[in-house]
Design a protein around this nucleic acid. Sequence first.
DNA 1: ATGAAACATGAATACTGATTCATAATTCAT
DNA 2: ATGAATTATGAATCAGTATTCATGTTTCAT
Lengths: 195, 195
Amino acid sequence: MTSTAPKTKRGTERREKLLRSAERVIGDKGFAAASIADITRDSGTALGTFYIYFTGKETVFRELVTEMGTLTRRVMTEAVAGAPDRLEAERRGLRAFLAFVAERPSLYRIVEEARFVDPDAYRAYFTGFAEAYAAQLSRAANKGEISKGDAEVRAWALMGIAKTLGDRYVLWEDKPDIDRIADEGFALIRDGLRV
Amino acid sequence: MTSTAPKTKRGTERREKLLRSAERVIGDKGFAAASIADITRDSGTALGTFYIYFTGKETVFRELVTEMGTLTRRVMTEAVAGAPDRLEAERRGLRAFLAFVAERPSLYRIVEEARFVDPDAYRAYFTGFAEAYAAQLSRAANKGEISKGDAEVRAWALMGIAKTLGDRYVLWEDKPDIDRIADEGFALIRDGLRV
DNA sequence: ATGAAACATGAATACTGATTCATAATTCAT
DNA sequence: ATGAATTATGAATCAGTATTCATGTTTCAT
């Protein structure tokens, strides 16, 4: 799918370097404005080298989306592991997500842009995530840790909160106060608006 | 900003026709893939005619974003007017928003793509909206209609829910059951996950 | 140590589509 | 009814950049 794997140490390193440059450049200027020349310049290689490792611009892009998928799942799983109940898991998960956005803003922007550049990849990414999320919520509801409700709709709504807070407070802010945002967001998730 | 206003009945009509074609085509294929030729073809005019009414591709785009801003505010204001309290306003607002997305999916997609095509317009759009929203939440909290909490963070979180549910259930679904989604979403907004 | 396979290079190619412009048709105030 | 202003046309121009490829260089299994 992404051409063949390198067979040399040098090759492996070059490929990785190009991938990181692609993340930086595309995340920075956006898919359309980012040129292959930008990417190879950033990584200190010749223009043609890019095509040794990737079939084209969309290919790197897709690979970055996939990478983000893997990473996010890992981060979230680790963050939530060991939480005593679902509510605590939600709190930790939200915080971890915001922290991850702060750490890899480019990767996060790329996933969001995938909605327009590669809708299928985008859909696959979030559908997969939502399924796992909904399953957790279902289980928690059955155990009585949270109230009953449509797990799928809830999963998407909760992902929406995380995404939007990430956009607004992590990407748009210079020194985001992640703990505060996560706390406020979690309060809403737990209690709703009701008095 | 968007070149000068037409001075003829014919001119006004052509401009409007082009704007609607731009909405359809850009909303459909996305900004990058939509060509001016696509737009003029869709509207049954010659290629050059486009440039009589708009300075360029980004200009129509920006105008569509602005239009969406105006429309959304109007729709939401009307939907919420006359609600007995804030919670009921939230319920009606969410439903109205989802219905609006169903009615003008292209316009909605365009606003979301603005994040990448014209970040400033995107930011202006949502910041303005969020400010008004937060003000309403603050007022409601003071009146005791909803619990206390950071109104700004809440506004963004609630917008996030609406946006994501709109994406998932209105744009991705053939026959979205808007009432059901709105009800489920509202239940979460009102009560949270807590038992 | 060596040569076949892998990798690196960047100038040249190819293509797409935005924008311009000279020319023609239409509108509408007088 | 008329002509100056407005609008319509689409072929030609222009620009940018993705991708290829012929030519070196480097790696590494033997």
